[in-house]
């Protein structure tokens, strides 16, 4: 099988596995709820099977661009940074978390000029405060109790 077809094979198998798992769950549903859920799942499973058949028929032909593991490194690191940012948002509050997240992600992206980094970080926090806190009265995450000394920001 051509390398580019393996990824389509994996996608089709994932679709079928998810579809079957969800179909099994419908056994506990009410009759009316079951009707629409099974209709949707049938379509989902059908698409998975069609992709599987197409992939197997054209197994030796290339299909689009090959995706290498290397291409996932930086995006996944960025994803981890975003997850840490969300965790910080809950523990130390939105503004301190953003003050840390922005310069870190800029540095991660390879940007090294301090002045634009500082200006963008402060500018963004000010923009968010003016628009969301001051104008729209949105109560942003304040963090855990130990961060209560910053509650005036929210």
């Amino acid at each position: 099988m051509h390398k580019t077809r393996i990824q389509d094979l994996v996608i089709s198998l994932c679709v079928i596995a998810l579809g079957v798992f969800m179909w099994v769950q419908t056994a506990d549903f009410t009759d009316e709820s079951k009707q629409f859920s099974r209709f949707v799942l049938l379509l989902f499973l059908l698409m998975g099977v069609i992709l599987l058949v197409i992939t197997l028929i054209n197994a030796k032909k290339p299909a689009g661009k090959e995706v290498t593991l290397k291409e996932f490194k930086n995006p996944m690191l960025m994803f981890v940074i975003i997850c840490v940012y969300v965790a910080m948002m809950i523990t130390i509050g939105f503004f301190p978390a953003t003050l840390i997240f922005m310069p870190v992600s800029m540095l991660f992206m390879g940007y090294r000029r301090p002045l634009p980094i500082i200006c963008t970080t402060i500018g963004m926090n000010l923009f968010v405060w003016v628009l969301f806190v001051y104008s729209l009265k949105v109560r942003l995450p304040e963090g855990a109790d130990f961060m209560s000394f910053l509650s005036f920001l929210y």
Partner: peptide, 20 residues
């Protein structure tokens, strides 16, 4: 505008927008 400056701004606005 350099992409590295733009990306964190989009990320912050995205998460903030979802929360709001």
């Amino acid at each position: 505008v350099p992409i590295p400056l733009l990306i964190p701004c989009i990320a912050v606005l995205s998460l903030l927008g979802s929360y709001a």
